[in-house]
Every structure is written in structure tokens, then in C-alpha cells.
Design a protein around this nucleic acid. Structure first.
Length: 343
DNA sequence: AAATCGGGGGT
DNA sequence: ACCCCAGATTT
């Protein structure tokens, strides 16, 4: 039996029942695919349900304020996905008459839909024979065909895409694509794959050559940057505080946070006092909430964070009540503090 | 071609 | 610590 037929057979016998498995609705498939980019099924599934409940149709999503979309996305990370999700919903409504494009090229023209996601939607919704190449597919193909080309090199990306296209089932792209991904997730797992009961064990090159544990090859470990964040939690006599929105480039675009003073290293109270002398509300007290910084770890940044509590003399003109805080989309770092801090 | 962009879970 | 996750976009 061919590789693709083994994959299809395995899939039909072993597939999980997932919330988006039994629909071909492009809106739902698109939503699930965006949520699942670089995200595990268990982490993304609650968000899939939340979004469908809040936005049953692409029109509902398109007409919502971005802030509401970001709030629902809070905690999932890679927030450009949420901004692009919103923008694409508006493009579908305004430029595609409310219907998702039904070609690979048309899908790929939408924001946040790249090579993988265009192939996924095209195949799952319309059975178009475009091969998906996600992290699971790289692993399955690298092992089964014994390919040691780095999966994150330009040559590797091109080679694996061509290989994926060559070995796919063009007549059942819908189930084949989902099958090879499911196979990679459940059977040909990154660590401790179940080779002893694998239906492809007879013909797997990596298993034969004892290279299962080194394939796929991946280069470039990104070095992490260390940053020092000092969040200024202002409080007036009405227990109101201040928030600012992160704009421009960098992490957490368009999310909210307390006014931030970033520094080269940990600062003393005196340095914060000097910073507060200019353009900030006059204060009656200043104290550090956590002497030991909270280390918030992103994939490429370590944020050493301290929160400073600043009681102000005057009422804050743009003050936000503590109860209102939960309405704003904020990074997990801020959400954790809000939950911990009791006035 | 390389860097950037989150958060969570496994080892 | 490091790796991975139904990747896309910017530099």
C-alpha cells in the first residue's frame, strides 16, 4: 500500500473527534486554522468555542471593534493573528461579498493566511489538492523518507513542499491532509513516537537507519533578549488607575498595560522618583509591589518585571476603575498581576 | 535569509 | 534550559 493510502487508512481508524472536524464551513475552518497556528489543540479549543459564540458569522466578527477581538484572544499569544483575523473578516465582507474565496491563491491573498493555512482551507473546505506542510508534516516526511535537509532553510522548505505534493492523495486531499497532520501529532510524535506499532514501520527510512530521534533537522536557535520592565500602577483616592495602549512595533501590539518605564537593569526607587518628576501626577506614596522581579518568559524575550504602586494626590483625569480593568485586552503578565493584586 | 512575534506544556 | 505547537510577516 502506498504512503498516502496508509496515512488515510490510519486516519480513518484513529482520528480524534475535534470541534471543527465535521464541518466544511470556510468561516469555521479558517477560524480554527488561525487559532491553531503554533498552538496546541488543547490550548486553542476553548478559544474556538468562545469566538464562535461571540461571532457566529464572519459578519459579526467584521463589525466588532478590534478591542473586543483582542480581548477574546487574550492569553493565546501571537496577537497579530487576532488583528489579521479581524482585518480578514472585514475583507471577506467588503471585498468578497461575505464569501471566502474558493481558490488557494484567493485565500492566500487574505491577511494572516499564508502557505499552510491557504492549503488547509482549500483542501478541507473544497477538496483542492494543495498539500499542507506544518510542523507535523515536516516531521513525518523527514523521518519516513529520511530527509536530513533542515526544515527551516529555504532549500528545505521548498524541498518538503515538493515532496509533500508528490506523495499526497490528490483525490482525497481533504482527509489526506488532515490525516498526515493527525498522524504526526498522535503517532509520529516529536518525542517517543510509537514506532513499534506504526503501520509504516516496514518502509520508514529513519527507523531503519536509527535516525528517528534526530529527524527532522532544525537550525537556528534564537537567542533570547533580557529586558527590565517597571510598571507604574497609579491609584487615586477613588481607586482609579491609568492604562496605556501599546502602539507601534514590538510585542503586544494594541494591547493595554500600566504606564511602563523600561530600563537597562533593575532600578532603585530613586530612579523611578526622578522619572515621575516630569509629566506624571503628583504622588503621596510610592512603593514597590514585588521586590523580586517577576520573570515573564516569551519565546525570544525574558521580561524582568516589577510593579510599583503609586498613590496620587489628585484624582486621575483619565482614570479607570479597577472593575473596568477586566474589559481591556492585556498581556498575560498584566492579567496575572491584576488578579493577584488586591487594593 | 534571518528576525520577530506568546504562551503553555513536556522533557 | 530547551523543544515543540495544524505559521505569518517583517526586516
Amino acid at each position: 500500500m502506498s504512503f498516502s493510502q496508509e496515512i488515510l487508512k490510519w486516519y480513518h481508524q484513529n482520528k480524534r473527534e475535534l470541534p471543527w472536524r465535521n464541518t466544511k464551513d470556510p468561516y469555521k475552518i479558517w477560524l480554527s486554522e488561525i487559532i491553531l497556528q503554533q498552538t496546541r489543540v488543547v490550548q486553542g479549543t476553548p478559544y474556538y468555542h468562545k469566538f464562535l459564540e461571540a461571532f457566529p458569522t464572519v459578519h459579526d466578527l467584521a463589525s466588532a471593534p478590534e478591542e473586543k477581538v483582542l480581548k477574546l484572544w487574550q492569553g493565546l499569544g501571537y496577537y497579530s493573528r487576532a488583528r489579521n483575523l479581524h482585518a480578514t473578516a472585514q475583507m471577506v465582507v467588503n471585498e468578497w461579498n461575505g464569501e471566502f474565496p474558493q481558490t488557494y491563491k484567493g485565500l492566500k491573498s487574505l491577511k494572516g493566511i499564508g502557505d499552510y493555512t491557504a492549503s488547509a482551507i482549500a483542501s478541507i473546505c473544497f477538496n483542492i489538492p494543495e498539500p499542507v506542510v506544518d510542523g507535523n508534516v515536516y516531521r513525518v516526511l523527514a523521518r519516513y523518507y529520511g530527509v536530513d535537509m533542515p526544515i527551516n532553510s529555504s532549500e528545505g522548505i521548498k524541498h518538503f513542499k515538493e515532496l509533500a505534493r508528490k506523495v499526497m492523495d490528490v483525490d482525497d486531499a481533504r482527509d489526506y491532509n488532515q490525516g498526515i497532520m493527525e498522524f504526526g501529532a498522535m503517532q509520529c510524535a516529536p518525542k517517543k513516537p510509537y514506532c513499534m506499532l506504526c503501520p509504516l514501520q516496514e518502509s520508514c527510512v529513519a527507523l531503519k537507519d536509527n535516525k528517528v530521534d534526530i529527524l527532522p533537522i532544525k537550525l537556528n536557535k534564537t537567542k533570547t533578549r533580557t529586558r527590565y520592565f517597571n510598571y507604574m500602577v497609579f491609584l487615586d483616592s477613588n481607586k482609579n488607575t491609568l492604562l496605556e495602549q501599546r502602539t507601534g512595533k514590538g510585542i503586544w501590539q494594541n494591547l493595554y498595560q500600566f504606564p511602563l518605564l523600561e530600563s537597562e537593569k533593575e532600578i532603585h526607587e530613586k530612579e523611578l522618583t526622578q522619572h515621575l518628576d516630569d509629566g506624571f501626577p503628583s504622588r503621596v506614596s510610592l512603593s514597590v509591589y514585588n521586590e523580586t522581579p517577576v520573570v515573564h518568559k516569551l519565546s525570544h524575550q525574558h521580561l524582568y518585571t516589577r510593579f510599583w504602586i503609586i498613590e496620587t494626590k489628585e484624582l486621575l483625569s483619565d482614570g479607570i476603575s479597577w472593575e473596568q480593568l477586566v474589559e481591556f485586552p492585556v498581556p498575560v503578565l498584566i492579567a496575572d498581576f491584576i488578579q493577584t493584586f488586591k487594593i
